[in-house]
Design a binder for these strands. Structure first.
Length: 275
DNA sequence: CGCATTTCCTGGTAGC
DNA sequence: TGCTACCAGGAAATGC
């Protein structure tokens, strides 16, 4: 499922194609709703850049608006016209000028979003409005991360998934990072020590960076703009490996539910802190 | 405001 | 083969 590395991979591929292009029209094929708001305003505006914040793709438009895309669980952005329209085509953006001149948003489960807002006005996107710092931003310090983690009593994994202490970490990379530093997913966020926060931020950075290099993790739906799979799935240490051996201690990895989300961890390497 | 719970949605799969 | 039941989960909505 698309998390920061997958979205960054898509951004890097979209940017050279879409930057400077003018939108001729936008076609909404999904049932209208807040997930696809404002699309009629995009026509006539040009795309100034293709940015990313956490798992959100942000495309400032020349007329003062902003195109915001979130891939959700199953969203895929590809050039249209090169193949038959995908089965679950939700939005198509026609561009002026040379081919490829059509961006298609395919999203079987419709958990994704593709909408136009006034630039920087994220009232309809509360998670984006309250998004934590970019984990790969050098100005984001371990001290700042620790201070953020101290603001909540919920399980540290749940708090990471909220996108508030740090942007872009989803279910896969949360499990991977917590395993790397030996933190139990149910550890209350406020109880994470300064040293552990530093180690956790380092682990998040290492895992995300390595996955970006591999063009992300493809388990089922995720593909790059050009249809490639991401290669990081082969390097996952815990996600999807419940019942298999921990690569550090040799014990069996277990699956549990934390904050309504499937969570794989090593009961030996990730000890639950005593209450 | 914080936090827990429910909702959205379809493809894949287990079980019969 | 064909049916039902259930699972996966990011973010928003809802309910304290």
């Amino acid at each position: 499922m698309p998390e920061l590395p997958e979205v960054e991979t898509v951004r890097r591929q979209l940017a050279p194609w879409l930057t400077g292009r003018t939108i001729a029209r936008v076609e909404l094929l999904a049932p209208p709703g807040p997930k696809y708001a404002g699309l009629e305003r995009a026509a006539g505006q040009s795309i100034e850049s293709v940015k990313r914040r956490g798992k959100f793709l942000l495309m400032p438009l020349s007329g003062g608006d902003e195109l915001v895309a979130h891939l959700g669980m199953t969203g895929v952005l590809t050039p249209g016209g090169v193949a038959a329209p995908p089965k679950h085509l939700r939005v198509a953006v026609d561009l002026e000028g040379a081919t490829p001149n059509r961006l298609e948003f395919n999203d079987p489960r419709r958990f994704g979003r593709f909408l136009v807002v006034k630039r920087g006005e994220y009232g309809a996107l509360p998670t984006l409005a309250a998004l934590g710092p970019e984990p790969l931003d050098a100005e984001f310090t371990a001290e700042g991360f620790h201070a953020a983690l101290r603001r909540s009593r919920v399980a540290v994994k749940t708090y990471l998934l909220s996108q508030r202490p740090v942007a872009g970490v989803g279910n896969i990379y949360a499990d991977e990072a917590l395993w790397r530093v030996g933190l139990h997913p149910m550890t209350p966020s406020e109880r994470v020590k300064p040293k552990q926060a530093r180690q956790l931020l380092d682990a998040i950075r290492d895992v995300l960076s390595a996955s970006i290099e591999a063009q992300g993790t493809t388990l089922s739906d995720y593909r790059t703009v050009y249809g490639e799979s991401g290669d990081y799935a082969d390097r996952l240490e815990v996600y999807g490996r419940a019942g298999q051996a921990c690569h550090r201690c040799g014990g069996l990895l277990e699956k549990m539910v934390v904050g309504q989300r499937g969570t794989t961890y090593c009961p030996d390497c990730q000890r639950r802190p005593r209450a």
